[in-house]
Simulated assay, not measured.
Amino acid sequence: MRLDKFVAHATHLPRSEVRKRLKSGAVTVNDTKEKQAARQLTFEDIVRLHGEILHLPEPRYFMLHKPQGLVCSNHDGEHPTVLDCLNEPNKEALQIAGRLDIDTTGLVLLTDDGQWNHQITSPAHHKTKTYRLRTAEALTPDLPARFAAGIQLKDESRPCRPAQLTLLDDYTARLIISEGKYHQVKRMLAACGNRVTELHREAIGELQLDTSLNAGQYRHLTSTEVKQLSSSNE
């Protein structure tokens, strides 16, 4: 890791301020003043700022009950973002593991552990996502079999992977998919001549949205939940 990035992560200082500290000689590596921001550090290097040893903070993992009207982005000029729900230091460093549309509610995961995020979101891992949906038109009995066979989306060369659709009533269903195509759930129903009017993500993998969280609330993941998501083989 670059020295300036390490100091920024360890102190939550902006990168511009870190460069000033480096230039002033306030940063040492193995007790030697270091002014080169691009210096690559090893695990054995000891970095100090004004004589105090710096350590990278422990990775953070959160689940959020996303309400409607928020975008899954770190910055947006028009809409509030999911980060606005969090009261955490340096929250801009968090990554969103599995984005939802502005009008979709439910489980969103946030972390500053890039490797863990990759395990959750990489298409190669086929992590399942469970949604509860409501449609404009009545759901027909043939739909579960059609979803299990693979829905062909418009402008896609291959059909979707087999998905599990469970009809709950005439207009409501639960859907489990193992992909993350753009607007996939809405496009799947559109391919069947219907339209999604409400969409809520209940789970990612085996991790269920905590039912005690109201829309807009969040909590830390437990260590068991973190390991469960990274180790489960979907």
Rank of each mutant, 00 (worst) to 15 (best):
Q36D: 15
M1V: 15
S230G: 12
K5H: 05
N117D: 04
Y182Q: 09
R48W: 02
A93F: 10
I46A: 08
D210V: 04
W116Q: 00
Y171C: 12
N117V: 10
C85F: 07
L70D: 02
P141G: 03
T121I: 09
K35N: 11
S73T: 11
N74I: 04
Q36R: 15
H118L: 09
E234H: 11
E202T: 15
L100A: 00
G77L: 06
V27E: 09
T211P: 13
V29D: 04
L143K: 01
D103G: 12
A148W: 01
P80G: 06
Y218K: 09
E34W: 02
S212P: 07
E206A: 11
Q164A: 13
L143D: 01
P89F: 03
G51T: 05
M1Q: 14
S232H: 12
K5A: 08
L54Y: 01
Q36F: 13
P67V: 15
H12W: 07
L153M: 03
S178K: 14
S223V: 00
Q115R: 13
H79V: 10
L100T: 02
S24H: 12
E206F: 09
A173Y: 06
F43Q: 11
I176V: 13
E17K: 13
A26K: 14
I120Q: 01
Y131D: 13
Q164S: 14
T130D: 08
L207F: 07
K35W: 05
E206Q: 12
P144W: 12
E137I: 07
G180A: 11
L41Q: 02
L221K: 03
R2M: 07
K5R: 11
H200G: 13
Y218F: 10
L229F: 01
T140E: 07
C72H: 05
